[in-house]
Structures are given as C-alpha cells and as structure tokens.
Design a protein around this nucleic acid. Structure first.
Lengths: 222, 222, 222, 222
DNA sequence: GTGGTCTAGACCACT
DNA sequence: GTGGTCTAGACCACC
C-alpha cells in the first residue's frame, strides 16, 4: 500500500504516544490483551520499549475510546464488552450508519464510487482465495470509506469508534459473518452510486440489522 | 441528588489530570480560551498550578473530545467550530436524541419521570426569575438526565459530547434560544412519561429540528 | 522483511534527523540529487516536510560520510565522485574486505552460514525472475551481513560507508555487474562456511579485484 | 606547510560547529570528558560559550567518528573504548597503514621525504630534551604526514580517525610507548624514501604489529 | 512492595 | 530562543 515516494518525513513521523495508542488498540482488538487484563504502565512501557509517559497518554485516549477502563489510583484494565454492550453499540449504529449512507449517496463523486467498487472487487477476489483475514480488512475499509465520503467528520469519528469495537467483539467470539455480507455491501454501494439518499439509508439500515442479529447470536459472555 | 454528606473521600479525590480536563473544558466552553488560541503546556500548567504532565494527559482527552486540535511537534490549539461543524453535529444529534427519547420512554421508572418533572419546575421558576444562566444549566441537566435514563452508556457518552459542543457554540454566538424551548421540553417529558417510545422519538426529533434551525440562524463564522 | 511482531516501538522510533539522513543518502545514491547539485537547507526541509534544524544535522553527518561537501558560508553540494575517487575507494576495499572475510570465516556460527546461504538462494530466484533491482539489494545485503559476522564494528562501519559509495558510483554509471558476480559470492560463502580464514581472505581479494576492474571499466567522468 | 602569514580571514574562520567539534574531540582525548560521562547539550554549550545548536551538530559528527554514543531521546555519552575496541581498531590499522606506507613510497617526492626526515630530527631533539608531550605530537605528525603523501584521501581520513582513537586509548592508560618507537620510524621513512613500496609495506606492518602488542599490554578495562 | 501519580530535567524540533 | 516530547526519579496510595 506504500507509495514508492513516501509521504514527507515530517508528516509520517508520529509521536511515540500515537504509535503506542495504535499498538495498544491493536493488541486489545487482537486479543493479545484480553478483556479484564490489568494493564500496568510499567508492563506496557516494557512491551513497547518506551517510558511510561507516552504510555500514560495513550491510556487516557484509549479510555476515552472505550477500550480500557481506568480506576483512579488503581490502574487500567482492558474493558470487557458484554452482550449488553454489543446491544448498545448496535442500537447507535442502526441510527448512524444509515445516516452515513444517505450523506454519502448525496455527496459521492464518480471517483468515490469507483473507489468503493474497487474495494468490492478486491473483496470478491479475497473471498475466492479464502483469505478471510483480508476479507475482514476490506470490510472495514469499505465502511470507513463510506464514512469518509459522508463528509461529516463527527459522524465518521463516532462511527469509526463504534466500528472498531464491533470488530473487537467479533474477534473475541472468533466468528466472522463474512460469508453472506458482501451481497448486502454490493447493494449498499449501488444505492450510494445512484445518488438516492433515501434508498441508501434504507439499504444501510437493513445491513446493520442483519449484522446486529448475527452479532447477538454469537455474543454472550465475559 | 447528591447527599449532604459527601461521598467517600477516595471517590471524590480525582486525579489532577481529571480536574485539569474539567477546568480546560470549562475554560474553552466559557470562551476564556477562545477558538484558535494556542494552548502551550507551560501556560496551562501555570494557569492551573500544576506541572505539565497532567496538562498533557488532559490535552489528549480534550483532543479526543474535539475541543482542541493537536498538531505533532507544533502544539495544541483551541478548536474552531465553524457553521459547517454545527451542521455536522446537529445532523448526528437528529439521529441520536430521538433514539435516547425512545429508549428513555421505554425504560423510565416513575421515579425517573418525577425527577424530570422536578427539573422542569425548577426551570419554570428560574425563567420567572429571569436567571438565564440557571435556565441554561437546567436545560443541560434535563437532556443529560434523559440520556442517563436511556440506559445506553455509549449513546449517553456520545450525545453528551455533542451536547457540550452545542453549548459551546451557543456560548460563542452569545445567543441562547432559552425563551421558547421549555414548551417543547414539557411535551418531551410528557411523552417519556407516557411510555410511548414512538411518540417520544417523534417529539424529540421535532425538538432537535427546532434547536438546529435556531443554531444555524445564529451561527456563521470561524 | 518485517516480522509480524514488530520491534519495540521505542527502538524503531528514530529522530527526524536520522530519517532525514537516510532519505538524503538514498536520494543522493539514487541520483535524485545528482553530483554537483546545490543542497540548500530550505529546499531539503521542504522536500522532507521538516524544519531546517534536522536537515542541518543530517548534512553534517552526510559530509562526514563523504556524500556532500560543505563549504563554510556557502552551503552544501552533492559530492562528485571521480574515477580517481573510485580508484581510491577500491584501494581501501581491497584491504578491508579480505579482512572481513577472514574474520567472518573464523567467527561464523552455523546459523550465520545458513543465513548467508539464504541470501544466495534468494538472489538466485531474483536473478531467474530478472528482478535486477532485487538482485542489487541482495548483493548489498550479503556483503553487509558478512561485515556484521566479522564482529568488528569499526571494520563494518568503515566498509559499509565504502560500499555505499561504490553503489552510488555504479548507480551513476548505470551499470551493474550483477550478471557474473554470484558465482564469486557462492565461493565466498563456501569459504566462510569452511571456517578457513586464509581461504576466505584469498577468495574475497579476488572478488574485490574483479569488482574493481569492472568499476574502472565503467567509470570515467564527472 | 602552513605559511607564516595566516591565510585570508574568510578561509580561517571556521564555523562554530567545527571549532566546537575540535574542542570536543580534544576534551575527550585528553580525558577531560572521561569515558561514560554524560554530555548534556546545555553543559557543552556552556563550556564552550556557544548556543546549543552548534553543539548538537558537533555531537552528530563526533558520533559518526566514534567518540560519543548517542541514544535517541537519552542523550550523548562519551564512548568507552574497551580492550576489544582496541583490538578491533588495530586489526584495521594493520591493513591500512601498510597500504599507506606503500602508496607513500610509490608517490613520495624528494621534498616529501625531506619533510618526513625533519620530523624525525625534531623528535630526536625532543626525546633528548625529555619533552615527552612534544614527542607524542611529532609521532602523530609523522603518521599523518605519511597518510597525506599516500594521496588517497579516503585512506587518510579513515586512518586518521583510527589514529586519533589509538591516541585516546594511550592517553587513558597513561602509558606511551614512545621510548623505542623511533627506530622503527626511521626505518619506515627510509623505506618510503627508497621508493620501494613492497619494503615500505613490510616495515609498516611490523611497526603496527609492535604498536598493537604494546597497546594490548597496557589496555584492559572499560 | 507494587504501582499510580506527579515533578524535574533534558532531548528534539519549529520559528 | 521557545515549546513539544520523552525519560528519570520521587512521592504516595493501595495490596
């Protein structure tokens, strides 16, 4: 995915705290840091090879994002999404993703639609190759791209956070509903491409509903 | 709702960073730190009488909440909500507050409703006394309480952040649409009290629509 | 080449100056900054998206490494290796690479040898695939690996600098002697694997001699 | 070779960073900044009466030369040559000084030889006067002059760096092998004067071997 | 004693 | 020269 001529050095040189945050999110979502696990600052600092200060700053943001719970003077613990959490998250997603789809349909340029269709095509190939991991990545990429097209950064930021949590839960339950979701995705992109906001919103609502149902089937612990 | 006897000392002893964060939010919303203002760590540390580390941690969270913008190696700046931002925020609120009202209607206990009506009554008295500041506070209190009753912490947390930003913008434009909003509030509480989720959602949608219109009239600058 | 579990964040988070230095070296060797080109600090700062300070520090080191020439109060210019320079460099390489080969032969563990042979195999595949760029990279990788095995950091550091310059000259003359060099490399690795320092030194000397001859044929300008 | 009348002011006015670098090298070699000592930028800036910027640039070059070790985000420390380091350095010198002697023999003009003999004579006088410090300086001057005569700037630059480090180690161990080395020096100059490269190389090799042995006797600590 | 919290100080980069 | 960033170390609450 890297361009040959990398972006300017200054722009890609992120502070340690940001890299720590990304690594921490990844570690949590991947299950390396399982729910309920205590996250002592010293341990994380050692894991990442940095001092405790950037770890602390990353933990504050991770808390704001809902990945960890911090108890004052007690330390941080990986959050434990329950089935209730999943229910809550989907309740919000059911409202926001249709909005995103509508806005995207109203604002999408031909280039945007081409880009979305490219993701669909890649997903088709990955599905044929049975590369489930890649399918999952493309699933995320598609939704994130739609959020970007919506042109509402607040919506995008909130929905992205929700989306990451859903991925996390899926990861925990070791189930992916990849098999049957791409038909819905194609319909969604078609609707966005048509420019019909009302239609896009309807399709998105159905899609979230299906995802929600699948999630609730597989959830139910911790 | 607070007991006269304050809660346990340990529970009310918040870390400095949390107090700094609260003070920072308040300072930004109140306009003491106007949009575009540079927030050097040293200055904030001095303002709050702490060292730079708790200031840094508070800034990270304030960034995640959208109150400040942090540019790597350049420092923090108070965010500058534009009229586009207001539009974006209301677009999301229009989806989430009706959801909150519906959930609240479906879950509200009689005690919850009594509590909501108490706020309405206090607001009526404050309006008669022309205590506009108090009216504003009660406005916030009402909406936050509804969010709490909804029982969806994700929804509550997101909507609260949006709500704070709306307050901020109102503060900036120095206009409050307090005069005519309480009629709507009464209708909203009635709907919640009735337990009719569908009705509550409809009333909430109208309310947000009115607020949105008022906000867009008064907004329109960096 | 990246491992799945990346190295600790702290270890791979280099200062901007180091990244600038690496980019500058790469730009010079690749010919993007041709010999004789003036390198104003402002321009480099813009090219890399950083401020002038890290650029200045990178330039000092690049000067110490012989890639640029800095004239006091006049600025930096990309160095212009002449055929005399090539001659000088090879005169030194003829003494140091045999030494490196001898030391490597005396110190190589079985694992070291396996690693060297892996590079040879990759090079064979890349040669078959006619991926000349990859062949060049593996060529460098092999020699650098031998230097590392030698266990003499001074030798490694000096020889590496010489090696980079030779690559630069090859790049300038747009000639690569890749075709016939891998036979020699195989002999060299065999000698190192045998543990016979004397033999390794002899083979290395022949190898450098061949490279030197090839370089002198293709050089002769700028 | 310097004229009595100093060169033009512009040419002799070196940038501050170069003067700082020279002073830093001198301070390290002389033991004023002992191995392992932390070199904070502020302290050096104060010591030399300059701002931190030229200090930083000098430190980068000093690192490239092996006098200091810089740990990212940790600062600079004076390098600590161990006996292993000494061994490594001499292993390289054994290859490069004979080469320098051979090249010098092949290229030396009568004037060059006269100049070398003048150094020998001064050294004889200084030895008689028991001015050991002067003897040491002349020792260095002789070897540096031979490197210059070799006509290979790469060789000269590399060998000079090695030579400075050897001096440093001798300084640290407070031992100088001055007593018996001048006989060897005379033989070396004779060989160079004869124009017989093979002979010069042989003599130089013996000389480095003797120096190496002496160094290893006196070394043996961090 | 472990570990969260905060301060002091220094490196690093921008202006 | 100012200011962002990170590290080292001290304080102090909890187990």
């Amino acid at each position: 995915m890297d361009t040959d001529q990398p972006a300017k050095i200054g722009a890609q040189h992120l502070p340690l705290r940001d890299q720590v945050l990304a690594a921490l999110r990844k570690g949590i979502i991947s299950g390396d840091y399982p729910p309920g696990e205590r996250l002592t600052e010293d341990r994380l600092a050692e894991d990442f090879g940095v001092s405790r200060n950037p770890v602390r700053e990353a933990l504050r943001v991770a808390e704001a994002e809902g990945f960890v719970v911090i108890l004052p003077r007690r330390g941080a613990v990986v959050a434990s999404p329950s089935s209730a959490t999943i229910h809550d998250i989907f309740a919000v997603r059911e409202r926001l993703e249709p909005l995103a789809a509508r806005l995207a349909a109203e604002r999408a340029t031909p280039g945007d639609v081409t880009s979305l269709r490219a993701v669909l095509e890649q997903a088709r190939l990955a599905t044929e190759a049975q590369d489930l991991r890649r399918v999952g990545e493309l699933n995320s990429a598609l939704h994130l791209q739609i959020l970007g097209i919506s042109g509402n950064p607040w919506l995008a930021s909130i929905a992205k956070a929700l989306y990451l949590h859903v991925q996390w839960v899926f990861q925990m339950t070791a189930k992916v509903r990849a098999p049957h979701s791409w038909d819905e995705h194609i319909k969604l992109v078609d609707a966005i491409g048509s420019g019909d906001g009302e239609l896009a919103e309807t399709v998105a609502l159905e899609h979230v509903g299906a995802a929600s149902a699948a999630a609730h089937e597989t959830a139910g612990r911790a």
